[in-house]
Design a binder for these strands. Structure first.
Lengths: 354, 354
DNA sequence: CTGAAAGCGCTTACAG
DNA sequence: CTGAAAGCGCTTACAG
């Protein structure tokens, strides 16, 4: 009693206004630099706001403006296992940086368990906690992605969703990229008997990369001598795929793994069997989220610009939220081939240590 | 005109109430299961809400209740580099799972650049976008952590902050853990000339782990023959530390790396120089965020329960928000030693493939 | 030009 | 017991 609680004393616009001797309305206009308010008053109000440490209430603003001032990053739990931690950190970083520039909060919805009937991220949108969403799911079978993208709410998907032609997407051309790296193996390193270890084929990314592999192999007339094994993007799956061939692995001279994690596992399995990489078998991965340059040998891979994808997707999302709806519905960002040792490009030991 | 926009038609409590023929007030009470409302009306209201797809406006609720219904996970950008992606995904997962159970949103503030004077996360709190914050910074020098923890706002820190005795923290006992794993190297594997590669010594974690190492070495009477090199938790630093000794590395028979990433780099450097691990030199790491079991040899390490830390911290945060302020100010969760090949425990090749 | 009311969507304290 | 007003903190359309 008599003591002012240190933290519960939220400073409101009214406090600022009173200090200057005007109404909250006027103070509001002053802070938004309205031409109705004199420069003198504006200066006074700004000073008072700074002195009192005024920060607008996000709730009041959201309610009044009918805008949350937040975007949601939605991560279906299955996706996390499929794409790994680094991918999401890159995406989160990209989303955050764009959102920060717009003074917008980032809400992460991992949908840990879809216990409550309504998917966690559906609630986020319906409660208007966020003005729009970035979705990173890739499972072809995820019904929520479809619902969300058709809800009319501002949503941008990262990846490719050919079965949702009306959605807005930002991705890479997985087919072309996987074809390109496969061609590299064939044309530069002369591999003739290739294996592809794919991702889970209920994921568009996995489908596309496999198709890219098959296209490159077919155009080189090597379809007959090639094979595809389905994995699940995990390091373990790469290991299993190599092992599953038994001694047959010795007939293979090139392996295109659909991501780096599987390449790590495959590399381990090959080494365990006394095969050298790239000497006996050349291998390549996909993603380049940070580990592929650290293995021995380092992994040749396709560098996916995850952070840029997120950044572009978020900018697109803001455009949609703001009613700017031009721009291509489906965008592809360029990727680059990162040539390292595992394909035979950089001689072992010759590469600088990072 | 005449066409009802599909998505902007937010259903409010008033819509629900009208359908039942009561006031919004009554509908509100019905949905919150107030004893003032008859069972019959409650049933009607619930049905109407379900039919119309009513979800309460988070902004209106927040404004009225003076509660955001969200917690913030604050990640100073320096920290991300220091602890890596996996650590944050574990923390995020832990925070999300507890927040989900409480129907609370998770807001991630990465404070990408502290351009706007006020740190991004200070704005989050001041604008009442979140009711409390989990902070994962570890830099001893971070002034914001101190300000935030002394702001009176509900804040729980993950880690140890001895210089902030009034803060609420959840961490592990880094000193004891590093001492324990060092003792393991000495007592079980008989190492006599030990090196410690520490983290950046302006981080409490780095200081504590170094102190743990020194304590164990001292109690074994090996202080004379031991040395400490400061790293920065990066894989590269581990590599550099080993290299920096030149041929002197051949006098070392045990290395305690302050985290796994540095152990990876160190392992590579050792192997490059023709030294075998654990044959010539036994090494151990710290963290166990997923990669240490995949290297060859796999890395013996201290398993840090990052997700549990986050979970406990978040539960604590909710208690504080709810005014429950008992419980220890500084909590330590137990850690476990995970014995693998790099210390010499599991004979090479004998371990099952993950 | 400027003052001050209305209203965003809730919840609960108050009046009847 | 129950109906309906008041008010959370903003912003802007409206009245003067």
């Amino acid at each position: 009693m008599g003591k002012i609680p240190a933290h519960r004393s939220a400073v409101t616009l009214r406090d600022v206004a009173e200090q200057v001797g005007i109404t909250a309305s006027a103070a509001s206009m002053a802070l938004s630099d309205s031409s109705r308010i004199s420069e003198k008053t504006k200066t006074l109000v700004r000073a008072a706001a700074a002195e009192l440490g005024y920060v607008p209430s996000s709730a009041a603003r959201a309610l009044r403006n009918q805008r949350a001032g937040a975007v949601a990053l939605i991560v279906p739990n299955t996706t996390r296992h499929v794409f790994g931690h680094s991918y999401f950190m890159h995406v989160l970083t990209g989303v955050s940086s764009v959102a920060n520039d717009r003074d917008t909060q980032v809400l992460v919805s991992t949908n840990s368990d879809e216990a409550n009937g309504l998917a966690a991220y559906e609630r986020v949108m319906r409660s208007k906690s966020a003005d729009g969403a970035i979705v990173t799911s890739a499972a072809v079978t995820d019904p929520y992605v479809e619902r969300l993208s058709q809800s009319g709410l501002p949503v941008v998907l990262i990846g490719n969703f050919p079965y949702l032609p009306d959605s807005i997407t930002v991705g890479i051309d997985d087919v072309a990229a996987e074809a390109a790296i496969t061609r590299h193996l064939i044309q530069v390193h002369g591999t003739k008997r290739l294996m592809h270890v794919s991702g889970p084929l209920d994921h568009q990314t996995a489908i596309d990369r496999r198709d890219g592999f098959l296209a490159a192999v077919a155009e080189a007339g090597l379809l007959e001598s090639s094979l595809v094994i389905e994995g699940d993007f995990s390091e373990d799956a790469g290991w299993q795929a190599v092992r599953s061939l038994g001694q047959g692995i010795r007939d293979i001279d090139g392996i295109v793994f659909a991501n780096d994690d599987m390449a790590f596992g495959g590399l381990e399995a090959l080494t365990d069997q006394g095969l050298t990489v790239p000497g006996d078998v050349a291998i390549v991965g996909f993603d380049d989220f940070g580990l592929s340059r650290l293995t021995t040998p380092s992994i040749t891979t396709v560098s996916v610009p995850a952070e840029d994808l997120a950044r572009v997707a978020t900018e697109r999302l803001f455009d949609i939220i703001d009613g700017v709806s031009d721009g291509p519905a489906h965008q592809h960002l360029p990727v680059s081939l990162t040539l390292r040792s595992s394909c035979g490009c950089v001689p072992k030991g010759a590469q600088p240590h990072r």
